[in-house]
């Protein structure tokens, strides 16, 4: 039997009469963007803190940070997602667990997915930040301290500005990964881009059109991210270093 291509499917009114199938895809795209961007903010903030802690000369702090990274890096994302969504609400103190369950189901899915993706990615960001700090010449830290700056001041004004510049390229990959990993969140029922694509197949029996649309949407997101990060790279270039003039 020949496959009947029908690109017009996206303009058909949906089976449940809530707009067209294109509206479904757009809603999915919005969820993916919102989820990934908020997870990325969490990942950057937490990852920066944990990455710094891994390099400080204090065994307790760096030990805690190492344990954090190894835990979130070595457990599959899917398992972590199930933990945040199904297990953790039952383990929380009753009041907090009930507050979570009182949210509407979509909000529950979104919050669990956002936190899960944010923590998972933060462990990876932490590793990049740590490698950036370790890549700096050791004398930079000494130079900051020798001027009388405290260790936190030395991190803030001397080491981190250069460390972050060094790791813009690997952070770009992590940024791209957030969007790709967000597809896993469809497994708890969150209607993001991939889930909307699958739903479209169920309703219209037009799998090729649906998955081509989903693929193109992910590609477009990541092209935009790459262009954006290239801009960032150029903006933070240091004259005389790292390709700057």
């Amino acid at each position: 039997m020949e496959y009947q291509w029908n690109w017009g499917v996206f303009l058909l009114p949906s089976a449940v009469n809530d707009g067209t199938y294109l509206d479904w895809m757009i809603a999915g795209l919005q969820t993916t963007l919102l989820l990934s961007l908020s997870a990325w903010v969490i990942a950057l903030l937490l990852g920066a803190v944990v990455g710094v802690l891994r390099t400080v000369p204090h065994r307790g702090l760096s030990g805690v940070a190492t344990a954090y990274v190894e835990m979130f890096r070595n457990i599959p994302l899917l398992v972590q997602l199930f933990f945040w969504y199904f297990v953790l609400p039952e383990m929380l103190p009753t009041a907090a667990g009930d507050a979570f369950k009182a949210l509407n189901p979509i909000a529950q899915q979104f919050v669990a997915a956002m936190v899960c993706l944010g923590f998972f990615t933060s462990a990876r960001v932490a590793e990049q930040v740590r490698s950036g700090i370790n890549a700096l010449p050791h004398g930079q830290k000494n130079a900051g301290l020798a001027l009388g700056l405290t260790l936190p001041q030395t991190y803030r004004h001397v080491m981190l500005p250069m460390a972050f510049r060094l790791v813009v390229p690997p952070l770009t990959s992590e940024f791209l990964n957030v969007f790709k990993n967000s597809a896993v969140c469809s497994t708890i029922g969150l209607l993001e881009l991939a889930a909307q694509g699958r739903q479209l197949v169920d309703y219209t029996a037009q799998p090729y059109e649906s998955f081509v649309a989903v693929t193109v949407a992910y590609l477009m997101i990541n092209v935009v991210v790459m262009l954006l990060m290239r801009k960032v790279e150029v903006l933070v270039r240091v004259p005389g270093y790292l390709g700057g003039k």
Binding site: G139, N142, A143, G144, V158, V238
Partner: peptide
């Protein structure tokens, strides 16, 4: 203190 490799802050 002055260091062998200068250690100015490049940024």
């Amino acid at each position: 203190m002055v260091f062998q490799h200068f250690e100015l802050f490049p940024h």
